[in-house]
Each structure stands twice: as structure tokens, then as C-alpha cells.
Write a protein that binds this DNA or RNA. Structure first.
Lengths: 334, 334
DNA sequence: ACGTCGTGAGTAAACGATTACCCGGGCAGG
DNA sequence: CCTGCCCGGGTAATCGTTTACTCACGACGT
């Protein structure tokens, strides 16, 4: 594979000149530039990014560590990140931590070792340790979930208020025994949504009934099982409406509802977090709390890139808001 | 940031010994190993992956270039790739080419420059140029779509046979004016599915009517417009059933169908490529051709890694088959 | 006319690891 | 007892760039 010295030899100049000509940093005689470019083309020269990065002590790569590649919320977010990064010549490495603290730690190590320019992280838990990064001056932006100990930028959604709003909406529609299906304890978004659920009950002057709350993994399977339990009325009377904390869980829950021979809306009110293109198509069209996933990605990427260029900025906290999209699954009279 | 010489100084040995102790390559006095490990820990030493890669002339990174991050088919595939790569210590860089030849070319350049160990590619068109990679000996595996000129491994689905099967299924259900909504001309999967559609019509002894075929981008928006046209009966009588070439298009088409006040199954038969967790939940539950996306990812990753270790293997072509999952959207009597 | 300054290009150091090569000492075999 | 081999560990070359430093040359100001 051709190296810079091959090009230099062919063009009859020094490697320094080749480097300068190709990078256009310092002014080089146009005639020489022409010779160099010509020689590079003839040899099919492609600079060795490894050597360049080693010398420059920087890479044009940002790592995006998320907890589930198959979750449309995160893919939309990834797309936002990618679009911003791509536009300024950065590449995005997508790492799938899978809600697994161990995998997450490994990816953080890799990010340190590969000296990425910055890390976008959706922490699996509040205990996630990013000191390995911050101590080395690698900028970190927390996205979707906060990172309490570290003084990092973060881009969040006011998920608690959104959950509250969803409950108020359900109450206004006439549902009274409203349950909640949320994620594992310790995952901030799961806990916040549960807190918002309680806020909502309080606002609507409905009684809290612990038997109407279930936790499961942010996956379809667990949600389905939990939903089946709830519908069987284990531990009390069954709910007449539900707030579900994410997209994948909604699918599991809807399967359980359909297996129980019930229909969303008329038989049981359903509101789920995360809009999806198919949400209007299901039977009944699903009421959702739409999070601005793509926008979160763009904002987070911009923050990260800004910090790469100026590490002295004070940490900021951006909170975007979610939007309730009422459809038939929360309408008992449709 | 601590370097290997800092560790060497602290442990009172040479950098060579540190390297050997930490990598366990050659035998080192256990007492020294202990001293080195201790020193490394105290300094919080993390090896500089850039320097290591430069010296070793290799990276433990594979690039996965796909055409749409938001397409669940590709995310499932990515997951398969990731699981395999991760298990043997490789990282996966996910690049979103967005069905855009230009972006794709840029990512291929980046892959060359960063000297990735290998590339998994779902080419945007048959014209995709991977010479930059093959000439440098970087292994390439084509996935989902073939790469005609290059002698690369490929992992494909027998999508033509699957399309044919879907049409035969629709014909058996009694539909007679079966249309097809496929992707842009030149994208192999789009063309293959169309060919399979024609095969199916022939098998079922149905007449081909060009006015029942539409092409659009592999996105919801284009499919919705095309479907609206078809339902308006532009250029002939409208279809009584449809084969749709991917998941995102199915969503667009279903929206158009619902806007026209029709219901899948009874009013118009629908079969779409790609299963999705929500497919059983929509009204009517969607009949699909399920592709083994995750498995394709694992197989492709294994092939790529095998070739990284032994570049002399002959190129192979793995063809997996898809499976028709009949649901109510292709049942006129349900 | 002379010193100074700017400009363009070359020389070589540097980035931080891995590893080829070499050296010294201990041990076994003749 | 001597020779040669093996083994552990140090020295320094190496990977391919970028860039600090240096130098030569021409122009310009006094």
C-alpha cells in the first residue's frame, strides 16, 4: 500500500511538502501541489488514518453508546447524531450496550483506548462510571438519561411531566383505575415515568393502588407477562387503563391484551411512550407520548462537537418536551 | 495521560517488558509481571489503541455499511453482526449510507483510511465500487444485496423465490388482480422481488398487467403516494391484492389503504416483506415474508472474520430462505 | 548597500505502542 | 571444565504521518 514517502519520491519532493500540499495547511507552490496531487492519484494513495491520528492526538470519531439498537427511539436518535456528525466530517461508532453494565463498561474502555473525540452515552444506570473518560478530558454528553455524579452536558426529555400529562389525559377520558407498566428500577427513565404517573394520579385525585404498577425489562416479552398478570387481576381488581413506558413494552402489552380478548380504547385505555410509524395502524390506533428522538440526537451531537472544540464551556442541561398524541386507544367511546 | 514508558519507569523495567507483561505474549518473570500490573493500575494506564494499531498494522474494527438505520431489517442484521463481533473482541462501526451512492463511497474511503479489519456492505446499487477495498486486501462481505463484479463473499436471501411464493399464496386465497409495490430500479432486492412477483403470476396463470406495478423509494412516503395512485385505478382497474417490497413501504401503503376507507384482507389482500413485532397487531394482522435478518448478520460476520484470518479462502455465496407468515391481511374471508 | 523579514521547502523529531535483535547468565552435555 | 543453547529482558527500530525547526533566497525599507 502506497505511503506518503512513495508519493514524495514520485513527485520529487519531501514528505513534508506532500503532507502540506494534500492538507492545504500551509501555502505550497501551485506547480508542486499539482505534481503531488498527480503522483498521489497515480499511486492510488490513501493516507493512513491511524498514523495521522496518532500524530495529531485526535480522531474524528464519536462513540454513541446506547442501550438497544432495535429500539426505534434510539435508532431515530442515532440518525440525528449521524446527520450532524457526518456533516462536519465526523464518523459515528454505534455501540450497543444492551442495558448491560458490563458491556457498557467495556465500550467505555474501548472509547478511551481508541481515543475517540467524544462520547454520547445513554447510561444503563445512574451508577454508570464515566471517570475513565472525564479524567482524560474526553467530552461526554449524556442523552435520554442523566448522569448524576459527573458534570457533563445532558440532553433529556421532561419525561416525568409527560407521564403526568398522559395520566391526566386518561383520567379526563373517564378511566379511573389507571395502571403503569414501567422499566426496571434504577433506570432513570423508568423511575421518572413512574413518578410522573403518581403525579398524574394526584392531579386527577385518583387513589394510588400499588397492585396496578408493574416493572419489567424494556422489552416485549417481560411486558407481555406483566400485562397478563395485571389483566388476571392478581393482587386486586384489574386496571381499566395503562401507561406503558416504552415502545417495545407496548407491543408485548398489546399482545397480552389481545390474547385476553380485549380491545384497547373501549375495554382498556392504553397510552405508550414513543411514537412509531405503525402506531396509527394498529387496532385501535395507539395514543402515544412522542419523544423528539431525532432532535435529541442532533442537539446532543452539536453539544458534543462544541465541547470537543472548546472544553472549557460550562456543562449545560437541555430538556426537551414530549408531546401527547391522542388516538383511539385512549378513547373509551370510539 | 499515562503512557507505557511511565509504567515502565514506575515498575523499574523497560517498555518492552511492560508490553510483554501486559499482553502475555512472551514469558516474563511472574514477579515482574506483578510489579508491572501494579504500576499500570496505580497510574490508571490505558494503552493507546492508535499507536498499537499503527504498529500492528491492523485494527479490531469492522465496518457495517447499511442503507437505512431506521429499517428494522437492518437493525436486526446489525444486532447479529454485533453479537458475533463483540464475542471475539471486535468492535462494529455502523455507517448509514442512506441509499446514497455518494455517502456510501465516502464511508468506503473512511474504511480504507482507518484500515478497518473488514467491511460488511449492503450495496446501494449493483454499481457500487469496492475496488478501493479489494485492491488493498481488505475483506468485504456483501449482505442482503449482491456485488456482481467483485469476487466477494455474499450472504443473500432467496428473495425472488419468496416473492413468488407470496404471489402464489395470494392467488390461492382467490385474489386475481395482484399488484406489486417495489423499490427503485437498480437496487437488486427491488428488482428481484419484482421478478419473483412475475414468476408468481406465471405460476398462478394470472395475466400480467403493468398498470398494477409501481416503484417508489424504500420509504413510507413514496409508497403511500404510489398506493394512492393504484387505488384510484390510474391506468386501469385497481388491484385486489398487493405485494409490498419492504416494511417501511408497507406502512405507507397501509396508511393509503386506510385513507381510502378500505380494510386489508377483505377489501384488498396485502403481503409485505419483513416481519416486525407490530405486524400481528395492526388491523388486519399483516401477512409477511419474514427474512432471517439476525441470522444473516451472524453468518455474514462469521464469514468476514474467517476471511480476516485466512484471506485465501474461495469466495462463497450463502443463500438463506425467507418464510411466509400468513395472517389476516391476505385472507378475504376472515 | 546592508540588514531584516517573509516565504517556501526540506530535515528530522515526535506520537506510543510492538517487536526484531542482541546480550548476559545459567545450565546441561561432552 | 568448556562449549553451546536457552531464556529472560533491554535497546532501539519501526509503523506513517504531522509539524517544529532550519535554511536559502528574494524583496523591501532605511
Amino acid at each position: 500500500m502506497a505511503t506518503i514517502s512513495d508519493v514524495a519520491a514520485r513527485a520529487g519532493v519531501s514528505t513534508a511538502t506532500v503532507s502540506r500540499a494534500l492538507n492545504g495547511k500551509s501555502s505550497v507552490d501551485p506547480a508542486l501541489v499539482e505534481r503531488v496531487v498527480q503522483a498521489a492519484r497515480e499511486l492510488g494513495y490513501q493516507p493512513n488514518g491511524l498514523a495521522r491520528n496518532l500524530r495529531r492526538q485526535e480522531t474524528a470519531v464519536i462513540a454513541l453508546i446506547i442501550s438497544d439498537v432495535e429500539n426505534p427511539f434510539f435508532t431515530a436518535l442515532a440518525r440525528g447524531v449521524e446527520d450532524v456528525a457526518q456533516a462536519v466530517g465526523y464518523s459515528v461508532v454505534l455501540c450497543n450496550a444492551d442495558e448491560n453494565g458490563e458491556k457498557e463498561r467495556r465500550y467505555i474502555d474501548v472509547a478511551v483506548q481508541e481515543r475517540v473525540a467524544g462520547v454520547l452515552l445513554s447510561p444503563t444506570s445512574t451508577g454508570t462510571d464515566v471517570r475513565a473518560l472525564t479524567e482524560r478530558g474526553t467530552p461526554v454528553v449524556a442523552v435520554d438519561r442523566p448522569l448524576p455524579q459527573a458534570a457533563t452536558d445532558s440532553v433529556l426529555v421532561d419525561t416525568r411531566a409527560a407521564a403526568r400529562e398522559a395520566i391526566v389525559h386518561l383520567a379526563e377520558q373517564g378511566y379511573t383505575r389507571i395502571g403503569c407498566l414501567t422499566g426496571p428500577s434504577g433506570i432513570p427513565t423508568a423511575d421518572e415515568r413512574l413518578a410522573g404517573y403518581r403525579d398524574g394520579l394526584r392531579s386527577a385525585r385518583l387513589r394510588r393502588d400499588p397492585s396496578l404498577v408493574r416493572r419489567a425489562e424494556f422489552r416485549a416479552a417481560g411486558a407481555r407477562a406483566a400485562m397478563t398478570e395485571l389483566l388476571a387481576g392478581e393482587g386486586g381488581e384489574r386496571p381499566d387503563a395503562l401507561l406503558i413506558a416504552n415502545n417495545a413494552m407496548a407491543i408485548g402489552a398489546l399482545v397480552a391484551i389481545s390474547e385476553a380478548g380485549l380491545r384497547p380504547g373501549t375495554d382498556i385505555g392504553v397510552v405508550s411512550f414513543d411514537d412509531a410509524p405503525w402506531a396509527p395502524l394498529i387496532d385501535r390506533p395507539l395514543t402515544v407520548v412522542a419523544q423528539p428522538a431525532y432532535e435529541m440526537g442532533t442537539v446532543a451531537a452539536q453539544l458534543l462537537l462544541a465541547r470537543v472544540n472548546d472544553s472549557s464551556r460550562a456543562p449545560t442541561r437541555t430538556t426537551l418536551s414530549a408531546r401527547l398524541i391522542p388516538r383511539a386507544s385512549s378513547n373509551p367511546t370510539a
